[in-house]
Design a protein around this nucleic acid. Sequence first.
DNA 1: GCCAACGTTGGC
DNA 2: GCCAACGTTGGC
Length: 267
Amino acid sequence: MTSTDRKYWLMKAEPDSRIVKGKDVKFSVDDFEAAGTTPWEGVRNFEARNLMKEMSIGDKILFYHSNCKSPGIAGFAEVSREAYPDYTAWDSSHPYFDPKTKQDDPKWFMIDATFLSRAQYFVPLSLLRHVADSAESDPPDEFAYIGMDGMKAVKAMPLVTRGRLSVQRVSQECWGIIQMMSEKGGWEEMTFGKKKTSATKRPRQAAIKNFRVKPTPTDDNDGGEVEARVDTSEELDVNPKKSKKRKASDVNAEVPLRRSARTKKED
DNA sequence: GCCAACGTTGGC
DNA sequence: GCCAACGTTGGC
């Protein structure tokens, strides 16, 4: 496969322990590393499911820590098995059981993901938001290497623009940028504030942590140029026809053992 | 097939 | 624990 047809994705998991129906839904980068390869079961969202169906073996995955103290990119993985029916939907004893789906007409799918590596420097969401919010100006000196185009690419990330999706498309540019950031770091000198930025569109999401850039007296770019072009290939082909009506609680009420499909507490 | 109400996601 | 955002439900 050439690098041009390789696809890139972001998948969320929850690194913090949370017991749901007697099971811990925690799935951190440590757990992922220990597991090696894991079926990504429990996704009960049409758009996320559709994206998983587009995945090919070898596609790269940003592994994201969600719903935790410090959300962000914690590691890298790849697709090791293409979409196949999520059998947990048929197992009446399984927390993800969906009585509405049948074996001859599977509704939910999963892929297998194989752990590749940890991010040497955890790339916090707050940093990505900061980058996105500054996309009109030059990147902070600390990571000037991502360039303006890189900032724009980050700004276009669904992670930044919409958030809630547990499986997202990632542009090749963003993949490169985030991997570079995870290797080089550069924001250690920055302080994560907690105040809202004064002016941003998002009422609530704008309440990102502030980054305070410490002056870096002798700085010139440290090399690395990212060849990023803005790629707007973020349109998610979604067409969740409202196939059946089910209460969100019927399906999502079920316990995603781990990762994406965000759980809710017992009912 | 629109859209208001509802319920979940997930950052803070 | 709060609550904005937004996907889903379901009445019309």
